[in-house]
Simulated assay, not measured.
Amino acid sequence: MKWLTYKKTIVGLTILTILLGLSFLYPLYGPKDFNSVRFLYDEKGNFLGVPPFPPSSHYLLGSDRNGADILFMMIYGGKFTILMAVGVTFLRLVIGGLVGVVFSLWLNRLLPIVKDFLLVFRMIPAIIIALPLMSKAWVIGSEETIYSILFYQMLVLALVGIPSVLLTTTEIIDHLKKESFMQSSYLMGANHFHVLKTQLKPFLTSYGIVIALQHLISALSLIMFFGAFGFYIGGISAEEVRGLEIPYSFTKEWAGLIGQNYLEFNRAPYIILAPLLAYFFIIIIINMIKKELETSMDLNHLGFHLKKKKKPCRNSERNNMRIKDVEYSLQEKAR
């Protein structure tokens, strides 16, 4: 079957599926307090120390300052990190894509105004726009409020990326409109719905997958930035990081684990390196899938590129032609 040729994609999706499965099933096998201890003793009852504890047979990845097992927290919080990024990407793609199609086909006259208005979202970093809105969700999380907090944060993170999807969609459709098969459809009397269903749908589907993977990486990066600022996905915990008075992540999502422990880098680097490397690993997997799909789907056979290429300098080309002309004239005189 054709989908079996996407080996990297299959491997990447399998890893993500296993990780999500372990995370969702954590309540069945993992301790609710993440194996948190205040004092560690050996088998003979001898006092070993206080948290944070380095990696050992008792704590494979070590523990944080509160004595919680980092590995258990990462397994539990993995679902919040991944599903939040997936949900944000889905909202961006659906809302931005649909609005972009509507403006490109039915409201084309208003498109220049919309592009000028949305240009600010491409010039200003997304975190600056979203930071004031995300501050509204800086509340203590609980089992009753966690879903409302997650939904609000998902809307905020999606909002800052919708303009980018909208503009990319309009650029793709505008490029496709110039192709002969599109112009022939309109000349034969096809309406916008027919063109969208028969001509545009295959291209928008292919480009949409790659755009979705791009925004999935973008969403993960944005979530990590917010974690560094102390805005954790799912809210903060009533418990603080012991001894530092730093808010504790309620959901134990990876960006929160990075943000709440970044001050420990010099004293106990394993506390922050474990979730940080896991975060990078997920981004590498998604980028690997994206590159394989881009190559296999041959998305640019129409000449459209999602990333702008630098145009060759005309002045340099003219200078090269002049140099060749001078060299040719000198050769003629020498003869």
Results as ranks from 00 to 15, higher is better:
7 K>T: 02
9 T>Y: 08
15 I>W: 08
15 I>D: 06
17 T>S: 11
20 L>M: 06
23 S>V: 04
27 P>Y: 05
27 P>A: 07
31 P>H: 12
32 K>G: 11
32 K>L: 14
34 F>N: 08
35 N>M: 12
39 F>V: 14
45 G>S: 08
46 N>Q: 15
46 N>W: 12
47 F>A: 11
48 L>V: 11
50 V>Y: 13
51 P>E: 01
53 F>P: 10
54 P>H: 06
54 P>K: 13
55 P>G: 12
56 S>C: 05
59 Y>S: 05
71 L>R: 12
72 F>G: 11
73 M>K: 15
79 K>V: 02
80 F>C: 10
86 V>D: 01
91 L>H: 07
93 L>R: 05
94 V>R: 03
95 I>V: 07
97 G>N: 02
100 G>W: 00
101 V>W: 01
101 V>I: 09
102 V>D: 00
105 L>N: 00
109 R>K: 11
115 K>R: 11
116 D>G: 14
120 V>Y: 06
130 A>D: 00
134 M>E: 02
136 K>Q: 12
137 A>M: 05
137 A>V: 00
138 W>M: 13
159 L>R: 09
160 V>E: 01
165 V>S: 05
166 L>A: 08
166 L>Y: 04
171 E>K: 13
175 H>E: 00
178 K>W: 02
178 K>Q: 11
182 M>K: 13
182 M>W: 10
184 S>H: 11
185 S>E: 07
187 L>Y: 09
188 M>P: 07
189 G>E: 03
189 G>V: 05
191 N>Q: 04
192 H>A: 12
193 F>A: 15
194 H>S: 14
201 K>F: 14
204 L>G: 07
204 L>K: 06
208 G>H: 02
212 A>W: 04
215 H>T: 02
218 S>I: 04
220 L>A: 08
220 L>E: 01
224 M>N: 14
226 F>T: 01
234 G>L: 04
235 G>C: 03
240 E>N: 14
240 E>S: 14
241 V>R: 06
246 I>A: 04
248 Y>M: 08
248 Y>L: 08
248 Y>V: 00
252 K>C: 07
255 A>C: 07
256 G>W: 01
257 L>H: 02
257 L>Y: 01
258 I>S: 05
259 G>M: 00
260 Q>I: 00
261 N>D: 00
263 L>V: 10
267 R>W: 03
268 A>W: 01
272 I>T: 05
274 A>P: 06
277 L>K: 10
278 A>G: 12
284 I>M: 13
284 I>T: 09
285 I>E: 02
295 T>D: 15
296 S>W: 09
297 M>Y: 09
299 L>T: 01
305 H>F: 13
315 N>E: 14
316 S>L: 13
322 R>K: 15
323 I>G: 11
326 V>D: 10
329 S>A: 14
334 A>P: 06
335 R>G: 10
